[in-house]
């Protein structure tokens, strides 16, 4: 191999630089935030149930919200039969956020951690926003 030394050093530097974010994250290893459920609405519930079981919600809430959106806006279906046969109005503002009124501690924390930026809030009104 020609110029082995500079090539190998160059490669090492390149790999080191491009993988830098991973190294840094390893060192810090910020703990995954736990979504907070401490809102008055949830505290008052006799049985703390969401529309679907927690593991389903954790893994698939984005699909569920997407389905709700299509169902309500395009199909006129507004009632969702959730777990234990309980009926819910399919609405981000009127259903989800009535319980999860702590958007910053429930939604934002995890979204920030995961580096995703859902653009729900440019139209949908978050609790406490623009309080008249």
């Amino acid at each position: 191999m020609y110029n082995a030394r500079p090539v190998i050093i160059g490669l090492a530097v390149f790999i080191g630089l491009t993988t830098f974010p991973i190294w840094r994250a390893l060192e810090k290893a910020a703990p995954a935030p736990e979504p907070e459920l401490d809102t008055p609405a949830i505290q008052q519930m006799p049985e703390k149930l969401c529309v679907e079981a927690t593991p389903t919600m954790r893994a698939r809430h984005m699909q569920l919200l997407g389905d709700w959106r299509a169902g309500v806006v395009r199909d006129g279906r507004t009632v969702y039969a959730g777990q234990a046969g309980k009926k819910y109005e399919m609405s981000l503002q009127k259903t989800c956020l009535k319980c999860h009124a702590n958007k910053d501690k429930f939604c934002d924390q995890c979204h920030d951690y995961a580096g995703v930026q859902p653009d729900c809030w440019t139209c949908h009104i978050a609790p406490g926003e623009n309080k008249p």
Binding site: L64, D67, G71, D75, R77, V79, A81, E89
Partner: peptide
């Protein structure tokens, strides 16, 4: 799909 569980009011 969650739509299977959705219906009009």
């Amino acid at each position: 799909s969650g739509l299977l569980k959705a219906s009009p009011d």
